[in-house]
Design a protein around this nucleic acid. Structure first.
Lengths: 139, 139
DNA sequence: TTCCATAATTGTAATGAATACAGAATTAAT
DNA sequence: ATTAATTCTGTATTCATTACAATTATGGAA
C-alpha cells in the first residue's frame, strides 16, 4: 500500500483511491489484464467506479511511464506493471500474457543496420507451460 | 502480375482485380502501409473501390496466411507482404516500419522456460537510418 | 457464346471501444 | 473552514471496423 503510493509519487501522480486500487490490481495480476478485466476486478471492491476513470488512469500511468501498454494483439491493449526490460509470451489457449526473461543479444544494442534503437519488445506466441501440463493444447 | 496471381492461387484466394491490386500495393510499399494508406493508393487507380473491400480483402489475406498483420502500435494495423520470418523497426520520426534482418537465437527456439513457442515478433522502436542522415531526430 | 450458380464487391447501417465534456465530488493548502 | 485545483463520474460523441443486403463479376457447363 505504502509502496504503491510511493510509486505514484515518484512519477508525480497524485495517489487517489482509484489510482492506488488500479495499480494494486496491476501488481497482483501478472498475466497482463486488459481494460475490461481491470474494470471488472475493480467493481468488486469499488462498485461506483466509472469506466472512464479506468481509461483515464491507465492512460496517465502509461504517459508517466509507471506501467507499459502491450499491443500484442489488435483487439486490445494489455497493461504491464513491470517496467524493467523483458519480453512476453501470449498463450493462444488461456490468453494469458506471461513475462519471459530471455537475454537476446539484439535487445541491448543501440544500433542495428544503421538505425538507432531506443526500445525492443519481443512478442512470443504459443502455448504456456501450464496449458501444456494440463494437456490444454487444442481448441 | 502473373506472380501475384500465382501467390493468390497458392493460398486458394480467387484473383479478382481488387485483390490483385491490393497485393500489388503491398508488394510495392515495403514500409508496411495501414488500411487507410492502402485505400488512398487504390483510389488513384480504382476510384470506385469500397473501403469495405479493402478491409475484407486484407482480413482474407491474413486469414489465409498470404500477408501478416503487425500490431506494433495500438492505433492501427500495418500489413506486411513478406511472410518469411523477420523483425520490424518502427521509426518514431517518419512512422515507417522497416524490415530488420537480425538472427536472434531465441527467435528460432521451439521452447522457452517450459512454454511452447510457435511464433516470434521482434518490435524495435527508434529512429531509422534515413531520418538520422537527414538530421530528422527531434519532433 | 449464353446461361447459371457461386463468389466478390459495394454502400449503407450498425456496432462498440475509446474519448470529450461538464457537473459533482474530492483533495490539498492556506 | 474555505477556497482553488484536481479528480471522478456519467452521458454524449466520435470514428474505425464490421454486418448486411443488393448489385456485380466470375468461372464452368451446355
Amino acid at each position: 500500500m505504502e509502496r504503491l503510493i510511493e510509486r505514484l509519487n515518484e512519477k508525480h501522480i497524485q495517489p487517489s483511491h482509484q489510482r492506488i486500487k488500479i495499480l494494486e490490481i496491476l501488481e497482483n495480476n501478472c498475466d497482463h489484464p486488459n481494460v475490461n478485466t481491470i474494470y471488472e476486478l475493480l467493481c468488486k471492491e469499488m462498485p461506483t467506479i466509472s469506466r472512464t476513470t479506468v481509461y483515464n488512469t491507465l492512460n496517465t500511468f502509461v504517459e508517466k511511464g509507471l506501467v507499459s501498454a502491450l499491443t500484442i494483439t489488435p483487439e486490445e491493449l494489455r497493461y504491464d506493471y513491470v517496467t524493467i526490460p523483458h519480453h512476453h509470451l501470449l498463450c493462444r489457449m488461456c490468453g494469458r500474457i506471461i513475462n519471459v526473461e530471455v537475454q537476446c543479444s539484439f535487445a541491448v544494442k543501440k544500433e542495428i543496420e544503421g538505425h538507432k534503437i531506443e526500445d525492443v519488445q519481443g512478442y512470443f506466441k504459443g502455448i504456456c507451460k501450464e496449458c501444456l501440463i494440463k494437456g490444454n493444447t487444442e481448441k
